[in-house]
């Protein structure tokens, strides 16, 4: 059990610098170069990284805007792409709360939650004294955020200086990174939803490019939900 302030800080730094920071640096470099290549400003890239802080939503924002979708549909699609934050926050915050925690403070801290800090918290919190968990989260998530912002800037500024093939490769990294990240998801429900959504996303894009993600979410998500409900016993077996 880690119960000393400095010990927890060191642990958070050690956990964050390494894989999470590198992936964020790399994936946000891809995002930064996409924003630049789409002819949008650096301030938008930085604001999207810090403000949305979730690559799928950020990609949805840029991609749908560039595709010419109206603001209403872009924002609706971003909202849906980020809906996972609700269950993530609900499952995370109670673990971090101690008697000293003020709820108002939580509304601020929640902005820094991402898939990296969520996973790290769920893994480490049992080993950390409850009143120091918030400390761990703040240090870990801050390092992630800084890495993400540096990556965004490097990608945006760097893409113009790079050979064309490298620049295209960085943009290609966005969907590939997510494909690989999600291929590692162990939940059967999530895998079903991904596999149902992939062809639907392309189909709906050809039929109704404005609404493709919304239709994919509504139909694909509901179909996946229905499939996973119908066969709960095989989930227990797998």
């Amino acid at each position: 059990m880690f119960s000393e302030y400095r010990e927890v800080t060191r642990l958070a730094v050690k956990d964050a610098i390494g894989f999470p920071a590198i992936t964020l640096l790399a994936s946000m470099t891809g995002f930064g170069s996409l924003v630049h290549e789409s002819g949008l400003p650096l301030t938008m890239a930085m604001a999207a990284t810090a403000g949305i802080w979730g690559l799928p939503g950020q990609l949805t924002l840029v991609e749908m805007h560039v595709a010419g979708a109206s603001a209403f549909f872009v924002i609706l699609a971003v909202a849906l792409a980020n809906a996972r934050f609700l269950p993530m926050v609900v499952s995370f915050m109670p673990l971090m709360r101690s008697r000293a925690t003020r709820t108002g403070w939580m509304f601020l801290l929640v902005q820094m939650l991402s898939i990296n800090s969520w996973a790290a918290g769920l893994r480490r919190f049992p080993q950390i004294a409850p009143e120091l968990r918030q400390r761990y989260y703040i240090v870990f998530a801050s390092i992630c955020m800084v890495a993400g912002l540096i990556g965004t800037m490097v990608g945006f500024v760097g893409v113009g200086l790079m050979p064309r093939s490298i620049a295209l490769g960085l943009i290609f990294m966005n969907p590939l990174f997510f494909a690989v990240l999600l291929a590692g998801v162990h939940s059967r429900t999530a895998s079903v939803a991904l596999l149902v959504g992939a062809p639907m996303g392309m189909l709906f894009h050809l039929i109704a490019p404005d609404l493709d993600l919304l239709l994919t979410g509504a139909f694909g998500g509901t179909l996946a939900f229905w499939i996973s409900r119908r066969r709960p016993e095989s989930e227990a077996a797998s």
Partner: peptide, 11 residues
């Protein structure tokens, strides 16, 4: 499910 389906479609 909805968010994963959308991610799958987006990717």
């Amino acid at each position: 499910c909805v968010s994963y389906a959308m991610l799958g479609g987006l990717i």
